[in-house]
Amino acid sequence: MTVLDVTVPFSTQIREASQAQHTEAENSTFMSDLLSGRLGVSAFRRYTEQLWFVYRALEGVTDTLAGDPVAAPFLRPELFRTSALERDLDHLHEGADWRSALRPLPATETYAARVLEVANGWPGGYVAHHYTRYLGDLSGGQVIRGIAEKTWGFAHKGDGVRFYVFDGIANPAAFKREYRALLDAVPVDGPERLRIVDECRRAFALNTALFADLAEATR
């Protein structure tokens, strides 16, 4: 049974307890091939398409959670990504009507459904998914942006990679420190913190499953 050390900041506990799952997701075949340039821009487009479903789930519930003491502090408009994803997809599809034809992969559907499930009954679980996505976008996501710009010729921080550009965050390092401080102060007890840690692991596993579906779809 996992036991959290109360002398260690909660943000550190989350990072350390989910490190194995995080590493597995980062080292998936799809992500490794994407970052190495072995995949074409069509694979990047497919990835962006699937992210759209996940972020619609994450951001479509913000009004519901706006008054919740656990989740509300994390609902920062400067993090919202859906409109940026839609701008990227308009560019990647060259203005075509992509919304009518787009469908989630099975793993994406499962992932988005889990986000909605916790958002509608367990705010701590929603925070776990919020953390794994947005802090990842501000960190490793910037590596993806740089490679996409270099490999497929997107303009620096331009259409196609807007998802990775946080115009409302002037100092990402300071913002991440503030975010971790919010995690450290989350108003829940030890057993609930253990549940949140477990949900972080699950969130990374859902990402790994999504990458596996993408690998299959891009063969």
Results as ranks from 00 to 15, higher is better:
23 T>L: 06
37 G>I: 11
22 H>R: 02
34 L>P: 10
10 F>W: 02
35 L>N: 13
29 T>W: 14
32 S>E: 11
27 N>C: 13
15 R>H: 10
21 Q>W: 08
8 V>R: 13
25 A>V: 01
7 T>N: 04
17 A>F: 05
10 F>T: 07
31 M>I: 13
13 Q>F: 06
30 F>C: 10
32 S>Y: 09
9 P>G: 04
37 G>V: 08
9 P>E: 08
7 T>E: 08
32 S>W: 05
37 G>P: 05
17 A>S: 15
8 V>M: 08
13 Q>A: 13
21 Q>N: 13
12 T>S: 13
38 R>H: 14
28 S>D: 13
19 Q>W: 08
18 S>C: 05
8 V>W: 05
18 S>R: 02
29 T>E: 15
9 P>C: 02
24 E>Y: 03
15 R>C: 11
17 A>D: 08
30 F>M: 10
34 L>R: 09
14 I>R: 03
15 R>W: 06
40 G>P: 04
37 G>S: 03
16 E>T: 14
16 E>A: 11
10 F>N: 01
33 D>N: 15
17 A>Y: 02
21 Q>R: 12
38 R>E: 13
36 S>R: 13
31 M>E: 06
31 M>P: 01
8 V>G: 05
12 T>C: 09
16 E>R: 07
36 S>W: 12
9 P>Q: 10
18 S>Y: 00
17 A>E: 14
10 F>R: 04
15 R>E: 06
19 Q>A: 12
10 F>K: 08
6 V>E: 14
20 A>D: 04
21 Q>T: 08
13 Q>E: 14
12 T>A: 14
11 S>T: 03
6 V>F: 03
7 T>D: 10
18 S>E: 01
18 S>L: 06
21 Q>Y: 11
18 S>G: 07
